[in-house]
Design a protein around this nucleic acid. Structure first.
Lengths: 394, 394
DNA sequence: ATGGAATTGTTTGATGGATGAACTTATGGA
DNA sequence: TCCATAAGTTCATCCATCAAACAATTCCAT
């Protein structure tokens, strides 16, 4: 090894061993981490939780859990509710629940034929939604953003303040910059809207987020209450619109790929040598299962193609469930598409014989992406409560 | 919200808010985290690193970085090398490098026509490889494991002790249990070999790992030195054998899916209504690009099909690079397959126009999976050095 | 040769967060 | 009325990082 030291073209040892490096853990880090852990338990719990229960669930001492809970209370991220009628001996527990006033997530959506805005509070509840129908194709970006600003004001709920804002667009968005690479159905190309979103809502603490419509819709689906106990931590969400997009949720988190362009299922080849696609290739899923093709060829043809593409995704990602969204969720279409896709999965997915893949239609209707965008903001607060706790104390 | 408290069918508040919960961060956690951070910098550095450089790169104080480095030294995970001829003023820096003696990774591979074993030290260097050719199909599992035990002894290198052992098999392996779901080409079905691997090498500190052959080969590829500066943090590794498998590497880590069955590219449909596959479906990639079909139909047909399936994967995962391994890496085949796949990607991948996808053949030959398996063990030590540091002190 | 500048590595006390045990509060039941 | 039980709080202690001063070693200019 010593040889390396005398090698002249080697870089100086002391300079720049790695250009960038992650920040080290310090004592503040463990507090941030534990605050987030506690907050997640409070948010995910089906009923109000006591400080003692939090301590037991995490393994912290009651002293620690209590101190952290008090910090969350002081920051306005959770609230205390009256104790229940005691069922056993001992001092009754005070219940902790996510706050339903204070910081909340604002979600905006621009789609081909409508604009939407949505507010979701820290408990994950949708508090308000507004939509404005109208063709958005080939409009000036500035005008669209002005309209969205109006909607954001209209959707405001008394007692809720924007913690952050997220915009859903039907197109490719670069991560983590939020640059809109292209949204072909809107006629948008290479746009930077983050700064304008920030000005739109300067009081928000979080930086604006921009993301793909299907991705945000998937996020909304991931956090929809499931009455049948089905898993919603890992699934593929396929959104049928003019184009076909997919949002992939893994362990409750959106998978975006290294540059944010993951989930482009619309251009998976399902019919080699098939119809020409506007992307330049032939036989893309979009040419058979996109909205226009769907109307022309009918749902049966779309089901076959969709089944093939979805099976490929499930084989590659190892997913236990698939959700059909967008127009695919419309009852008449879902009645054909759900069984069609389920059949294709049973046939083509390697693990299906011993682990069948569940297929269902989305529970969310229109403006799912706006809801998901608002949810994304709320999830950021859930994941990093320390910023609010610090601010509340200072 | 208070309503919830009086709802009789609600679970008791204090009991079981969440069945399981992650462990909280304690003070030991931050030390473990920082040890791992420092160790990674030392391992990834192209030349010996000084304590001061580590402090600068991480943002820790020199005092902290120094203390942690001393702990790694005491644990035998790194070594100190003599200072270089000083190039500037100031006290010369002592260099820190990964240890080349002590703990090392043992990798085993069982394939259709050979067995292999490999030892990789903490610097990531392959120190020894042994292979034993011979048909392994339909052999008794116990016999095969006995042969592997022999190979593990043969491959031993003086001065290196097993930190752990990993086994690569050509089949589906459940994660994180390590249960072999099925390895059709070996005739194996539903096997539990972890316990036998543990007995094979009882002095190893880490629990035995079992994984898919293509996955481990991908891992080997991810950590191969790249002379051309190409990225190897995110890529798709496609392994052509009797079957066709893929290992997906994201941010330097293997993506296995929630149950460990990700990467099943061999049964993606590439020719609707095509030849029957042994999986029961028709037109799977394997029926055109598997080893037998490859010999029958030639590489040109395989290239077209492979291009389609790989394009689907790249569209879904947003990957900047693809590596062809297994028999696909053989020079004569690669000469056809690499340009063929590259052409298909340029045509079918949505982001290709502004972010071309790199395609190349694997640099590793046979026994790539054994190398990758050994690498996986080494990576575990890199990721969790605290266990060794603690042991070294006690 | 000699002193100053520069850079590495170590020592020392301060800071802050989790811990564990004792303590206070509040309820049900004998 | 007393005691068992459980929730929440207080306080001394531990431990890893930080900050700043200190010691060690080399280059360079005079």
């Amino acid at each position: 090894m010593e040889r390396l030291w005398h090698c002249q073209d080697m870089p100086r040892v002391s300079k720049d061993p790695t250009p960038i490096a992650a920040a080290p853990a310090r004592q503040a880090t463990i507090r941030e981490s534990n605050l987030a852990l506690l907050y997640r338990l409070i948010v995910d719990a089906p009923a109000p939780v006591s400080r003692a229960a939090l301590a037991a669930a995490t393994g912290m001492t009651r002293a620690t859990a209590s101190a952290l809970a008090d910090a969350l209370l002081a920051g306005g991220l959770i609230a205390e509710v009256a104790p229940p009628p005691a069922a056993s001996a001992g001092r009754p527990a005070a219940g902790l629940v996510p706050a339903r006033t204070g910081p909340a997530g604002w979600g905006l959506e621009v789609n081909v034929d409508y604009l939407a805005a949505c507010v979701v509070d820290l408990s994950g509840t949708v508090r308000a939604t507004v939509m404005r129908h109208g063709d958005q194709r080939d409009r000036e970006v500035g005008e669209v953003l002005d309209d969205l600003a109006d909607l954001a004001r209209e959707v405001a709920v008394p007692g809720l303040k924007p913690a952050g804002i997220a915009l859903a667009v039907p197109g490719l968005v670069q991560t983590p910059t939020g640059r809109i690479q292209r949204a072909p159905n809107l006629g948008w190309e290479d746009l930077e809207v983050t700064e304008r979103l920030r000005k739109l809502m300067p009081e928000a603490m979080l930086a604006p987020m921009v993301g793909n419509e299907a991705d945000f819709a998937a996020l909304a689906e991931a956090h929809a209450g499931l009455e049948d106990g089905a898993t919603n931590a890992d699934f593929l969400y396929v959104s049928g619109e003019i184009g076909v997009g997919a949002g992939i949720v893994l362990a409750g988190e959106l998978f975006r790929g290294s540059r944010g362009w993951a989930g482009e299922i619309g251009h998976v080849t399902v019919e080699p040598g098939g119809a020409a696609c506007r992307c330049g290739a032939r036989g893309c899923l979009e040419t058979v299962a996109g909205l226009e093709a769907l109307q022309r060829l009918g749902p049966q043809a779309a089901a076959t193609a969709l089944g093939r593409a979805v099976a490929a995704a499930v084989n590659l990602f190892d997913l236990p469930a698939v959700v059909l969204g967008g127009v695919y969720a419309r009852a008449d279409l879902a009645a054909v598409l759900v069984p069609g896709v389920a059949g294709a999965l049973a046939e083509h997915v390697v693990s299906a014989p011993w682990a069948p893949v569940a297929v269902r239609a989305s529970r969310w209707g229109e403006a799912a992406a706006a809801t998901g965008a608002a949810t994304a903001v709320v999830r950021r607060v859930h994941a990093e409560p320390a910023a609010w706790v610090g601010a509340g104390v200072a």
